[in-house]
Amino acid sequence: MYKITFALLSGLLLASCQLEDWASPGALVPLTVDQDPDLPALAINGTLLHVQSYGASSDPLLVMLHGGPGGDFRSLLQARRFAEAGFYVVFYDQRGSGLSKREDKNRYEGADAVQLFIDDLDALISHFQIHDSQKVFLMGHSWGAMLAAGYINQHPGKISGAVLAEPGGFTWTQTGEYLSRSNSIRFFSEALNDAIFPEQILAGRSEHEVLDYKASFFSNYENAPGNVIGNAGPYPFWRNGAVAFEALIDNADRYGFDFTTQLHQFTPKVLFLYSEYNEAYGRQWAETVAAPFPHVEIKMIAQTGHEMLHFGWAGLYPVSLTYLNELK
């Protein structure tokens, strides 16, 4: 018996010499713009962002802001269609997210971490806006809509209009209240197992590739059948920026934020969208979050959940286009 055990152990050890490393670039998560020179990239504000643009550069600028933090713009790509309607559409993966260059956690640790994201957006707008009279619109989803509000709060005169799709909240307190509904734990659910069981296998590793891969399993939870936010299933993504997500949540928890202090100065109408199937949102929460804007139109997008720019595109596009054309 001892000989058999020894032989089996030896075989297993021999095989283990050829095992792949979880952190190998490209093995489990895609390469980022600093690793793959073929990806479209823009060096801006001290980092390297994954950026794609569509349309004529002289048309009104429409900057798309993805959710997360730590998400990417892959699920928003149907918005390329706004280019056919006369907008210059710019997508970018936010700092440390998607296919943009990874950043060390300490890059997000100061009180100005959220400001870094606002400054990235400002630098991006300055890069693509070819003259001062070119109008700039923002379209943000979830965290991206929060970031849009944060930008408008600081630069109300630079933006001509905004489409905000289910921002959790415009203050950290408000966001926490929403998250407590949208991410409530269903303890005996398959969704919980699917999200966290791998944590005992991928445990205590600090490499970004490993953390990003592990974070991808969390999408099991938000997209599982019967999910609270009404998603129809998985939606496309490139990479979960685990470090950006965790660091920004920690940062918000420590320092808080308030994107509402100057929103009363923003005079253009805002289009505020919520989805029919997101049980954690609804008309009442939309009115609460949108309240600081002086002029706001609130609309429900039917037959979709939170990921309305992907699953609810057929309803979202005409509503958004009508609004943007009004302000164009």
Binding site: S16, L19, A203, V210, P236, W238
Partner: peptide, 21 residues
């Protein structure tokens, strides 16, 4: 499974020590 749809280059197979708890 569906991770391969998101990232077709993802590599199946045997991976080494993945950490501990």
């Amino acid at each position: 499974g569906s991770l391969k749809e998101s990232y077709p280059g993802i590599r199946d197979g045997w991976y080494g020590a993945s950490g501990g708890n």
